[in-house]
Nucleic acid binder design. Structure first.
Length: 1110
RNA sequence: GCGCGGGUGGCUUAGUCGGUUAGAGCACCCGGCUGAUAACCGGGAGGUCGCAGGUUCAAGUCCUGCCUCGCGCACCA
């Protein structure tokens, strides 16, 4: 056991293995869950590493007001496996749970439930009551989350989680805001923001991104009549509801415009309303005439946009916007962002309803006046037919107003001004909660000046190790390069209140703690303002905080700005707010920031990944995390996104209850690279169970059953590794090789490759070869070095496999590990080493040489692995030969020859048994069974032969006498089709000669001719061989019968055999049958006697055999 | 529209520096093996490597364009 002994976590006494039972994975897992709970195994796994270097993980807090789905299991698997892995490496990995509890999603749920679909309704219901309902609603699915988390064995501390609604958490968030405020990074602004009239709130860019939908809307070309002449300027808009708010037209100063005159009436194919009369003049960008105009026109004049600037036109809806003291209202303005890719090259400008419009309006001094209310309806005085109506419902009305024949009685001045209408399909942002189209709307809001820290954001992002790297460099980097100020306030109720109080005259005060609030309240009270009590445990939510009036430096009353924070801000504060920094846990926070590892779905790029960095950059001037694994989306088996509305969400419990959490987790990790979208195939989970876990269990069972039977003691009579048979040394070497690449895979985030390799090792190398080849060794009832070697080997391999698998699939391997050692695998050491325990190690750096020394892997022997690979290929070649030669597997061959290749002496017995050959010979005269074939080496040949390379290659392949050609190539080169072919230009292959029952295999990874190894079998029969073959066939059938009779392994039987037309059985073979099948009595009847009815019967190569077992 | 990542037998996927027979697994068919497990082994069928060009002696691989799926960005009037 010396190699495997756990040096770093303290040596331990190995228990003797227990016999294994039949596998019931679900039962096994649920039993283990109980046991873990009793033992507090999660705690113990952390405590065992108490002295290790810390590795800091930060849990992205989910919202527990929805049911967890399989995609949450995926994310939690990757979080868990890294934490468990690092833990096994000796690091101290604390894992605090967290819950995101504020924000719009919660409010919307409650609004739906209580039927409070407007802000008025909420306020009528009572803000306190509403927020109380939110506070409760947050926990609706907490139990479901907890159950899922526990069942899948995601080890995270849910008993002491951080909760964003806790006063301590909110207080830390306030503190952070105050830092921003003090640095001048938090400001109040008036900006055009996407706004949802139903939820009554504006959104930040990352929320808007959630709701883009393709819609088809009416777009209109409108004629704006110049006041100094008859011409009209054509402008285009997709939002007719913004037309009453029009106060300007923007043109590109360098764009070429034309004034053109309508030559003749439009054709009959005119679609929709609008039009123009013959002789009417319109102005638009020259490039867009073809796109826009539906009339034949004459170009009257051509000029740059600059010439239009300053000209005034008639308002469409006179009176809708008061002119005030603006001198530029309803004139043409210059804007260099105007292009000719869309519309008419003239941009209709409604100051309050577009970002560019607003900026231009401010610059040019246009009147800033709302024609639309916060509830999305036109304000009174806009137009009699529009006032009070929801703007999106007015599109038709507005178009009708514009399209009415000119001068029609009772119609407004806008009649006759529609040139065209056109349905326009585009992506438009919608509310991600209510699906309503968002309106761009100029409003008061609070912002974090992210644009001021852009360079730092980029710098810190560069320091993050992203997996995959392109998410960081590409997607996230691009987002940061285009960073906008963060609109951080929400006109809502349930959230972290914005802790800024403001006086009538604009003085502001940002409060950064409860203490400060108490002081300010006291000050205000002293100044004569009425205030409620502000106790230490004052609820830091609305409406309580709204109730406090503070006092300004000039003695004015200050009221709280009536906003709550974007809930993404809350989660962005998690690194410090979870510890109530800076009010408590100073040491904990200092030791854990920035965090080492976070992992979430790629959809968090603009969500949590961003807000963490945004907050840490503005508050601490540091990055928030060092490593970030960004997971791909999870799709259903058809490649469709999983969503509630589609109804294709996979319930994780379907698999927890069928194949178990191990198989579910292993499947998810092996299904593909973590960052690739994963098609979740339920059948894949079944397959994983059948292949990986069933196989592993049966390997274990094979070992454990015999170990228990023999009283195997892993610490006694150890056979030194180098004294064990080659088969043992081979599997140990394979184990070491696989463990090392597995570890490398983990380091490089290639968990999928690592696990596929390990699975291949377990199924192929361990089970299908090592165990299969070793079965007989353990049947031996007597104690022997060979048997003990095998048992120690199996024991060691199983333990290491368990430890490697443990981070990914923690159940079955714990059961196995416990049964073999009495200890949980989750306190065991990582086989590739325990860097976390080294002096001076950190999560980022350690002494690699020292770390290697803590590995607990057996020696690796590449030659041995290559040799065994060859042996296995030869065994397969033997089976191919038999199929081609029509010779059944159980009929032995007298002899076989291995031609060429490395020394296989050590494996002759094994090979003879696999091949069912009496004797293996090594044939040194290669030419007896092999001939050579020449193949071109294109890489060398191509530069010489150029275009002729294919012909030369053909000639080399088809050489009539390859031996002679090779000879002359070696004798200074051979000319083939005019090309001098030299030794490097050809590859020599040795293949079997025709006429022999033979197959040639190539030792993998070489093209050395010496390593083309042929196997030749002697296909001749003899009476002795026929007898032996028959004995094997009989034995196999009898064994099958024993099995179907469900006989005990030890049970003895009476066997009678009747053979018709069979070979003469030799005595030794009869005895062999008897002993193999554990016969008390065994009778072979001659040709004359008749078998009884009901005897088992089978046929082999023309012989009919009957037998009875009793 | 811009950016990122995909598209390889029915399904899931591997494929290195471009090298001449594109490799596995599941499912299917035939055969074998088994005191060996929802296992294993051999063989078979199944591929225009998304499409079209280009570079090259040679393209799944490199280049260009397009189609398509996913994701992200986008005031796009």
């Amino acid at each position: 056991m010396s190699e495997i002994q756990n040096r770093t976590l303290g040596g331990r006494h190995m228990a003797q293995p227990k016999a294994a039972g039949e596998l019931n994975a679900v039962e096994l897992e649920t039993q283990l869950l109980k046991r873990w709970a009793e033992e507090k195994a999660f705690r113990a796994s952390i405590d065992a590493r108490r002295n290790g270097a810390p590795f800091i993980f930060l849990e992205g807090p989910p919202t527990a007001n929805g049911k967890p789905g399989i995609h949450h299991v995926v994310a939690r698997t990757f979080k868990d496996l890294v934490c468990r892995w690092k833990s096994m490496e000796g690091f101290l990995v604390e894992r605090k749970g967290g819950w995101d509890t504020h924000g719009l999603p919660v409010e919307i749920e409650v609004q739906k439930r209580l039927d409070l679909m407007s802000n008025e309704a909420i306020e009528a219901f009572g803000m306190a009551e509403f927020n109380q309902a939110c506070r409760e609603s947050v926990w609706t699915y907490e139990a479901a989350w907890r159950e899922m988390t526990e069942r899948m064995a995601y080890w995270v501390d849910l008993d002491n989680p951080y909760v964003t609604l806790d006063n301590t958490y909110v207080e830390s968030a306030w503190w952070a805001l105050k830092q921003m405020f003090d640095k001048g990074l938090l400001y109040r602004g008036h900006k055009v923001l996407p706004f949802c009239p139903q939820t009554g709130t504006s959104y930040s860019s990352h929320e808007v991104a959630l709701g883009y939908k393709e819609v088809e809307e009416p777009s209109v070309y409108v004629k704006f009549k110049l006041t100094d002449g008859d011409a009209s300027i054509l402008a285009w808009t997709t939002t007719p509801w913004t037309l009453p708010g029009n106060v300007g037209l923007a043109v590109g100063p360098d764009v070429t415009y034309v004034r053109c005159r309508v030559k003749e009436a439009a054709g009959e194919h005119w679609e929709g309303a609008g039009g123009a009369e013959v002789g009417e003049e319109v102005i638009l960008a020259k490039d867009l005439m073809k796109e826009v105009l539906r009339h034949h026109v004459d170009i009257v004049e051509e000029f740059p946009g600059a010439d239009l600037v300053g000209r005034s036109y008639e308002p469409l809806f006179p009176g809708a916007v008061p002119k005030g003291d603006s001198t530029t209202a309803w004139t043409v303005l210059a804007a260099d962002w105007v292009t000719t890719t869309d519309g008419t090259g003239v941009v209709h400008t409604a100051v309050m309803y577009g970002e560019d419009d607003y900026n231009l309006g401010m610059e040019a001094g246009l009147p800033a006046h709302h024609t639309v209310d916060m509830d999305g309806a036109f304000v009174a005085g806009t137009h009699p037919e529009l006032d009070g109506r929801y703007v999106k419902a007015c599109d038709e009305t507005i178009i009708a107003l514009l399209a009415a024949p000119k001068g029609t009685n009772g119609k407004g001045p806008q009649s006759g001004l529609l040139y065209r209408e056109k349905a326009y399909a585009h992506d438009y942002p919608h509310c991600w909660r209510t699906d309503h189209p968002l309106l761009y709307y100029a409003m008061d809001s609070w912002f974090v000046r992210m644009t001021a820290v852009k360079e730092n954001l980029l710098k810190f992002n560069d320091q993050v190790e992203w997996a995959p790297d392109w998410v960081g460099e590409g997607r996230f980097g691009e987002w940061l390069r285009n960073v906008k100020d963060w609109a951080i306030s929400r006109e809502r109720y349930w959230g972290t209140p914005l802790p800024v109080w403001r006086s009538e005259s604009g003085e502001m005060k940002c409060v950064g703690s409860i203490n400060e609030l108490q002081e300010e309240v006291a000050k205000a009270v002293a100044a004569g303002f009425q205030n409620p009590e502000c106790p230490d445990d004052v609820d830091l939510h609305r409406p309580v905080v709204d109730g406090f009036t503070l006092v300004s430096s000039t003695g004015e009353a200050m009221h709280r700005e009536p906003f709550v924070m974007d809930c993404w801000f809350d989660s962005g504060c998690a690194p410090f707010a979870q510890w109530h920094h800076p009010f408590e846990n100073e040491d904990v926070f200092n030791a854990s920031f920035p965090v080492d590892y976070i992992c979430e779905g790629v959809d968090q790029t603009r969500g949590w990944f961003y807000t963490l960095l945004a907050v840490s950059t503005t508050v601490f001037d540091q990055p928030a995390y060092k490593r970030c694994l960004s997971l791909g989306l999870i799709l259903d088996a058809e490649g469709k996104k999983m969503s509630k509305s589609r109804g294709n969400i996979v319930d994780p419990w379907d698999h927890f209850n069928r194949e178990g959490a191990d198989a579910t987790r292993w499947y998810m990790v092996t299904a593909g690279a973590p960052w690739n979208p994963m098609k979740f195939d339920p059948n894949g989970v079944r397959e994983t169970y059948a292949k990986m876990f069933l196989t592993l269990w049966n390997v274990y069972k094979f070992h454990a059953d015999y170990a228990a039977l023999d009283g195997f003691d892993p610490e006694a009579s150890v056979v030194a590794t180098d004294e064990r048979p080659a088969l043992d040394r081979w599997v140990l070497s394979r184990l070491a090789t696989v463990a090392n690449t597995y570890h490398e895979g983990f380091v490089n985030w290639q968990f999928h490759k690592a696990c596929r390799d390990l699975e291949d090792f377990v199924v192929n190398d361990l089970s299908n070869w090592y165990v299969r080849r070793s079965r007989r060794r353990l049947w031996d009832e007597a104690d022997s070095n060979d048997k003990r070697s095998c048992q120690h080997t199996l024991h060691e391999v199983l333990l290491t496999v368990c430890r490697l698998v443990a981070p990914v699939a923690p159940f079955m391997v714990d059961e196995i590990h416990r049964n073999l050692t009495g200890e949980s695998v989750h306190t065991a050491a990582w086989p590739a080493g325990v860097p976390g325990t080294l002096d001076g190690a950190t999560a980022d750096a350690w002494d690699e040489v020292a770390a290697r020394k803590t590995a607990t892997l057996p020696p690796s022997d590449e030659d041995l692995e290559a040799t065994m690979a060859l042996v296995r290929e030869l065994a397969e070649a033997g089976r191919r030969i038999r199929i081609e030669g029509n010779r059944r597997q159980r009929l032995p061959c007298a002899q076989g020859w291995v031609v060429a290749g490395p020394d296989l002496d050590e494996f002759h017995d094994l090979l003879a048994e696999e091949l069912n050959v009496e004797a293996i010979h090594v044939e040194n005269d290669l030419d007896r069974f092999q001939r050579i074939e020449l193949a071109p080496n294109f890489r060398a040949l191509a530069p010489k032969a150029r275009a002729a390379v294919n012909d030369v290659a053909q000639a080399i392949r088809n050489a009539a006498d390859p031996e002679a050609l090779l000879q002359s190539i070696h004798d200074g080169g051979a000319e083939v089709l005019g090309v001098m072919v030299e030794p490097g230009d050809v590859e020599v292959k040795r293949v079997e000669r025709v006429g022999f029952a033979a197959q040639t295999v190539q030792v993998s990874g070489t093209d050395d001719a010496a390593l083309h190894v042929s196997l030749v079998l002697d296909m001749n029969d003899s009476p002795a061989l026929l007898s032996k073959g028959m004995a094997r066939d009989i034995t196999r059938r009898v064994q099958a019968q024993r099995k179907s009779l469900d006989l005990d392994l030890e049970a003895t039987i009476d066997l009678e055999i009747w053979m018709v037309n069979g070979p003469n059985m030799e005595e030794a073979d009869e005895a062999w049958v008897a002993s193999e099948t554990r016969c008390a009595a065994c009778v072979f009847h001659g040709d004359g006697s008749t078998p009884p009815d009901g005897a088992e019967c089978f046929e082999v190569d023309g012989t009919t055999i009957h037998f009875t077992v009793s």
